[in-house]
Design a protein around this nucleic acid. Structure first.
Lengths: 260, 260
DNA sequence: CAGGCTATGGCACTCAGTACCCTGTGTAAA
DNA sequence: TTTACACAGGGTACTGAGTGCCATAGCCTG
């Protein structure tokens, strides 16, 4: 039981030992999550949740527009963080910026590993939650795409590039994130996601600085020869095995170019 | 009371005199769509739909698992088409294959321009439908990613590549599609989507044949020099302006490599 | 103390979705 | 022809999410 009995002073005053009186929203989210993991999402009614939280049913829908929202209580805040980050970003390297923005989401997950892992399992087996999660992810993608669209406003196909890159970044992020979630919170999620994101970045980074990715794979090599003032032409001599995977070639070039 | 007859000449039915008796599923979808466009999605109840279709309420849920499904009655079939296409595809150029698969969806939309455009407007202004559409799109993306994952099974980071490319293809497709839908069904959707997809393909195509995209951009050039038996090493000399956009460089290389 | 503001509880209602059971019809076996 | 059975559809009642409306309790201000 979480018992949110409201005595006086709904203020944030924390005394310590006493059963901590959470703000209503937290209490509801916690009660909901407990019940969802105990007996399953669809087996838990909103009445069950408010009963455990010890509050009125109507209050639930004041804090969560729907039952699904109680499963993802932290994404609203996180989206705000991301948009704030993007707004404050200078934007000399837009692709790097959206990659960093994606890492904000990752950090939100890793801040509560147990919660994230259990929620992941829950989400995987409840179709309704999977669908809802899509709309959550979509909001992030829209934020990223919006940012990129503004950056690419004058470029040809700016909107197309923005949307494709945003989708790729989200997909890469989710790939790394899911791998970590599946592992049950072991592994290093940052490294996983960095690798995934650098994959996208190597493909699309315009010409900006890249914080070095690993060494180029065996079999390809790029020899860089600066020519002239460094502001115009440059000759690159590359040796690659025939039929080398394109991404290897790209990675080779990119990692060489980004050594400033 | 089986009254599934519709007023004459509505929709696909030819100008035949007798009121065409549609199969139940079509009748329901049509009645639903009429009501949705007349008074709005949320203002229409399932009872309204079955009343207009002249069938029992229970029958609605036999043919559509949810109310939202009645808005997208053709996607199930389309997904089947796509998976069948992918299964039958040899796979010597996986990226091209998923691009072609995406075009199947486009064709489904363009087969009924008026319906698609109206549905697009409906979907844009009803949040619940937007969310549902995400789950529909996601199914396509999963099909594409699954295909690519199988193709890239032995490649390093095969799963990551598969998911990122699938996401990019879907994003590109949707960009072109939405542009057409926003135009109200004017413009040439095929051209629009082809352009968007070729953008993705130019970035990721492995080494396969590319059915000629436009010429490489000004300022970059690739000189290809075969060395030896053509099965192993090869030297590529590339000249590119410093800070040239990465995708231009890649496009240059790719278009050269793909001249077989 | 009056008035007003906010947060919450309680109640009633709509509507999507489901479980269960009924009926008519067509078809194949007896 | 009769019987058996499968199947498409109809009807009813129920659960549970989400909403609108109003009542109440605490608190702040004048």
């Amino acid at each position: 039981m979480t018992e949110v009995r409201r005595r006086r002073g709904t203020g944030v005053g924390k005394a310590g030992a006493e059963p901590v009186k959470l703000p209503m929203r937290e209490a509801l989210a916690q009660a909901a999550f407990e019940l969802f993991t105990e007996r399953g999402y669809e087996q838990t009614t909103v009445d069950d949740i408010v009963a455990r939280a010890g509050v009125g049913r109507r209050s639930f829908f004041r804090y969560f527009p729907s039952k699904e929202d109680a499963v993802f209580p932290d994404h609203d805040r996180c989206l705000d963080d991301m948009t704030a980050f993007l707004k404050a970003n200078p934007g000399d390297d837009p692709v790097a910026a959206v990659c960093d923005a994606a890492r904000i989401v990752l950090r939100m997950y890793t801040a509560n590993p147990d919660f994230s892992v259990q929620r992941y399992r829950l989400t995987r087996e409840v179709p309704g939650l999977r669908t809802y999660e899509l709309s959550v992810v979509r909001r992030y993608e829209r934020a990223l795409a919006g940012y990129l669209r503004r950056r690419f406003a004058d470029a040809p196909d700016g909107s197309l590039r923005a949307e494709v890159i945003a989708a790729a970044v989200v997909a890469a992020h989710n790939n790394g994130l899911r791998s970590w979630l599946r592992s049950g919170g072991e592994e290093d999620p940052e490294a996983e996601v960095d690798r995934a994101l650098s994959f996208v970045r190597d493909v699309w980074a315009d010409a900006a600085n890249g914080d070095g990715v690993g060494p180029s794979g065996s079999g390809t090599g790029v020899l860089r020869k600066g020519v002239g003032d460094g502001a115009d032409g440059e000759v690159i001599v590359m040796v690659a095995p025939r039929n080398a995977p394109m991404w290897r070639v790209i990675q080779s070039i990119e990692s060489t170019l980004s050594e400033n």
